[in-house]
């Protein structure tokens, strides 16, 4: 199973870069969906091995939840929100796309150097998995910083969660079942609330640029 999860983790990281490099809201959501599929595959894979080894089905249930929520439901909500707001292409980035992508690359390098300093992790495969998943989370965070419009920020938040979830998965075969499900419920409510907020922000400021909220300072 190991070679597959290593490949999956590399693809996961790649999906974070694809997310970073995309300009359209539509492709954000697509990239997020692909990322979610990868997370689900990873969980499912690990779930099958645990079923075979211990007979516990927790991870398979979590996998099903990911498929239902992250692959199907959340992208649908986002698509609906995106159809309702006025813009399709995000124009205002922090920097241009190549710079953003190269900066993300340097994040990965930093994670690599940091993780390889952890003496406790000796096994090469674990190192790869850790670096890939942590980098996914960090790139997600950077994505969140680099996008100014609200939908981009929602997607960034979800990407961070994906990275952290997979990190937990690799580090300790997943968190306790109840925590996972709790996090999912949090996510869904976050997306719903943010989705509503996008409308509110837009109707209040006539834009979804979150920088405009600095006007509230008075």
């Amino acid at each position: 199973m190991e070679p597959f999860s290593v490949v999956l983790s590399a693809l996961l990281l790649l999906s974070a870069f694809v997310l970073m490099a995309s300009k359209r809201i539509h492709s954000y959501i697509g990239a997020f969906r692909v990322q979610a599929v990868l997370v689900a595959l990873n969980t499912g894979l690990l779930g099958l091995t645990t079923v075979a080894a211990t007979g516990r089905v927790d991870l398979l249930v979590v996998c099903a939840a990911i498929l239902a929520l992250k692959v199907w439901y959340i992208p649908r909500v986002l698509h609906r929100t995106y159809r309702a707001v006025e813009y399709r292409v995000e124009k205002d980035f922090l920097f241009n796309i190549p710079t953003l992508v190269l900066l993300s690359l340097s994040l990965v390098v930093v994670v690599f150097v940091a993780v390889s300093r952890i003496g406790a992790v000796q096994d090469g495969t674990t190192l790869v998995l850790l670096v890939d998943s942590l980098s996914t989370a960090l790139v997600g965070l950077f994505f969140l910083i680099s996008r100014k419009k609200a939908i981009g920020q929602i997607v960034g938040l979800l990407a961070i969660e994906n990275g952290l979830f997979v990190t937990a998965l690799y580090a300790s075969n997943g968190m306790p079942f109840i925590v996972d499900i709790g996090v999912f419920i949090d996510l869904v409510s976050a997306v719903l609330i943010l989705g509503v907020l996008v409308f509110r922000i837009e109707s209040a400021f006539e834009t979804t640029d979150t920088d405009a909220m600095s006007d509230l300072k008075g």
């Binding site: 790649l14 870069f17 796309i97 190269l102 993300s104 990965v108 390889s116 495969t125 790869v128």
Partner: peptide
């Protein structure tokens, strides 16, 4: 096209990184 080139570079660089991380 520079975006495409940047993505290709990132892919290559990540490729090397994936090789280097396990420490051989």
């Amino acid at each position: 096209v520079p975006n495409l080139a940047a993505i290709a570079f990132i892919l290559s660089f990540l490729g090397v990184l994936q090789f280097l991380i396990p420490g051989r």
